[in-house]
Design a protein around this nucleic acid. Structure first.
Lengths: 211, 211
DNA sequence: ACCTGAACACCGTTCAAGT
DNA sequence: ACCTGAACACCGTTCAAGT
């Protein structure tokens, strides 16, 4: 493990100028969370150190402990935020596609695109870095994203566009499929020439004949 | 991050008894690899430290550098070994099922079972810990596992049990599906009462009508 | 050829102390 | 209430030295 030093945290370090006697930071919790998100997107999770995140928002490396239980809690919040963003993308795609079969196809593509656009963030959500069932907020956001898929499937069933199977099991099936495509894509396991979008459309098309 | 200390490495530490003038270890490379595998299965990747692995096989923490470029190379070897084991499981299931549709179903279940039986090892193979395309040996083993799926699909096509679509794309589709089920299962995202085996069979059954 | 031991530059976390 | 700075117990990696 190269133990590569955080690329260039310096650039956003505020020179510790603090008004005399004023230790407050407005909303340090939010600032730390956003800096963690920025670092993950730019340099990956391993670049998120308490020292680097603290320095970037102009605070000591232990200030975080006032707002998070530990580093794991910070990453848990990052994961929860990811599920919130993912749910928004899915719902937007579903509605843009007219809440019909086209909308469902768009959801599948949107899912894979989210992962490909935010690979490091996606890994925090699913890579075993945070314990999915440990945190109530995280569980709620993850369930919300999953529920948007269940809702769409129920709507398809009402329009006779899907078989009246257990929508939960159907949703798990579709979720696993797009999740698998997403993981293989960001892992480079689809090969250099594979097109994640095309595979997603191919897969969803095959799924329709099965559900 | 609790930075939890390696549970109980002590138990397998040999008391550094070394025959005078004999530094050789027979096959230290293999010993280090197997100890890493054992630790991952027992305590997870984060328990694999050069100090712990070295101590467990009775060697200093830097002896590893004679046989691996760095810690990443050790984990890459672990991942490659995982793909070898996975391919064996898949081929065994395919042949046990008579190289027909039943065999294909068994492959899907075997895939998910492998991941559930070796969750930490599976994460090393797919969790972004090692770079999939960086190492030739790893790439070869991963391709071998994937190829066992392609071979099965081609056989199904020859038996008219699958549509004559591009077998590579079909294989990516099925691979993504079982991979997604596996990941969600070991991540606990399927919920506490979900049955990975049942979901795998449900999914493969739906797939057959689509391929 | 193979391994050691000290040294180095990092970590996350705790805690008494400051305002 | 909120933050600091030193201290602690860990890391992976390098390197001169030993056999």
């Amino acid at each position: 493990m190269p133990r590569r030093r955080p690329a260039r945290v310096v650039r956003r370090v505020r020179p510790a100028r603090k008004r005399a006697g004023a230790y407050h930071h407005g909303d340090l919790r939010r600032a730390l969370l956003q800096e963690a998100l920025r670092t993950i997107q730019a340099d990956g999770v391993q670049a998120v150190t308490l020292r680097a995140v603290g320095a970037a928002v102009g605070v000591s490396r232990t200030a975080l402990y006032r707002h998070f239980a530990d580093k794991g809690a910070l990453l848990t919040a990052v994961a929860a935020e990811g599920f919130r963003m993912l749910r928004e993308s899915l719902v937007e795609a579903w509605e843009r596609g007219g809440r019909r079969r086209e909308g469902f196809d768009e959801m599948g593509v949107a899912y894979v695109r989210f992962a490909v656009a935010h690979p490091s963030h996606y890994r925090v959500m699913f890579g075993g870095i945070v314990n999915a069932s440990a945190n109530a907020d995280l569980t709620r956001e993850a369930s919300g994203a999953f529920q948007s898929l269940v809702d769409a499937l129920v709507a398809l069933q009402q329009q006779q566009l899907a078989k009246p199977d257990d929508p939960l099991q159907l949703a798990r099936f579709v979720w696993a499929l797009v999740h698998g495509i997403a993981m293989l894509a960001i892992d480079g396991q689809l090969g250099p020439r594979a097109d994640p979008d095309a595979l997603a459309r191919f897969a969803i098309a095959r799924v329709h004949t099965g559900i």
